[in-house]
Nucleic acid binder design. Structure first.
Lengths: 191, 191
DNA sequence: TGATTCACTGACCGCTCGTTCAGTGGGCTG
DNA sequence: CAGCCCACTGAACGAGCGGTCAGTGAATCA
């Protein structure tokens, strides 16, 4: 995980991975069929950790706004603790490398990504049904909020000094709930 | 451009690029010092096309909402016409490949990305000054809207059949201006 | 027409990487 | 203690890469 996160999925070498793991190159092949399988398994393990955390956080939330806040907070906290995971996460969307690597990634990474987006879209749908969110394409909103918040995660990881996490969480929640138009500053904090 | 867009910045080989260009490998080195320079120049050329288009579209707009609409529309239209560019664009954020490639990319790609975000943030700042947008961190809003809309661009490129472009543009503009909360359905479409 | 130029070629080189497999050594069994 | 097991090793191999450069041939010059 550390090496792949550092070098990227296509540039991480078996030699460096073995070295960092404190074993010889050959040992790797006692546990993984080939390099592709290693990358795939590593990727799935890393992403599963994030997903578990996000799911736990969202499960306890009642309203959509609470769920949204829980999602963003969990995501922020996770990447703050696991900076190096971000690189793996951000290669979810786009396959990389040789054609057969790309095909393999399309079979493993992309479904994971879509599943997450669809899970979020399902929450949106429920919220629309409950009248917490106005009628709109749930998939589009899910995509927008996931990637939008990812952008801010990356910014926080890149910045020398970031504002308190709570500030950025509030910003995202308020932005999505109320938009940027100034006329009615209805800072909704309840539900 | 075609090869790099297809294979990614790190997996594109000189042999394939030369082949697709209809010249021998050696010929490439009459025009580029090395592979890195080729990738760098190709990248800059591709991105410059998008930026020119977006800048032109935004220049004629008056209000922030118009600028926002112009931005999203230009971006959608550009990637609809140049599907293959998307891969180049999406590798703006994260460097890829060997350490020295990563360093080179950090020097070229990342500044380009930041410059665009900061340009958008500047527009936001003006809009806040004019009272068109409520007070908030301009950088955060710029990041959010750029990456959020990028996510929807990717979705449109991946989908078999997408809704009309205008629908997605409206969705993004309305979402950003008014949020998702249902109570005031002020579908702003005026100026 | 012979000489010169020059964009272009592609076989070749050195290197790195993924993958293999004969060998090693510590521990367990009988 | 002999024999065996087995997780582990790392030198070696072959494929594929970026980069080189002597050579080619058409166009131009004198």
């Amino acid at each position: 995980m550390r090496v792949i996160a550092r070098k990227g999925m296509s540039a991480a070498t078996i030699a460096e991975i073995a070295d960092e793991a404190g074993v010889a190159k050959g040992t790797i092949y006692l546990y993984f069929r080939d390099r592709d399988e290693l990358v795939e398994k590593t990727f799935e393990t890393a992403i599963a950790q994030l997903h578990a955390r996000v799911d736990t956080a969202m499960a306890t939330a009642r309203s959509f706004q609470e769920k949204l806040r829980a999602y963003v907070t969990a995501k922020f906290a996770f990447f703050q603790e696991n900076r190096e995971f971000f690189r793996l996460y951000s290669s979810l969307r786009m396959p990389e490398g040789s054609p057969q690597q790309q095909r393999r990634q399309r079979r493993t990474c992309q479904p994971q990504y879509r599943a997450r987006i669809e899970a979020m879209a399902a929450e949106v749908k429920v919220a629309i049904g409950k009248g917490e969110v106005r009628k709109m394409d749930p998939m589009r909103l899910a995509l927008f909020l996931v990637e939008g918040s990812t952008a801010i995660v990356l910014e926080r990881l890149t910045e020398d000094t970031s504002p308190p996490m709570q500030d950025d969480v509030d910003l995202i929640v308020d932005l999505l709930m109320s938009g940027v138009a100034p006329n009615k500053p209805k800072r909704s904090r309840t539900n």
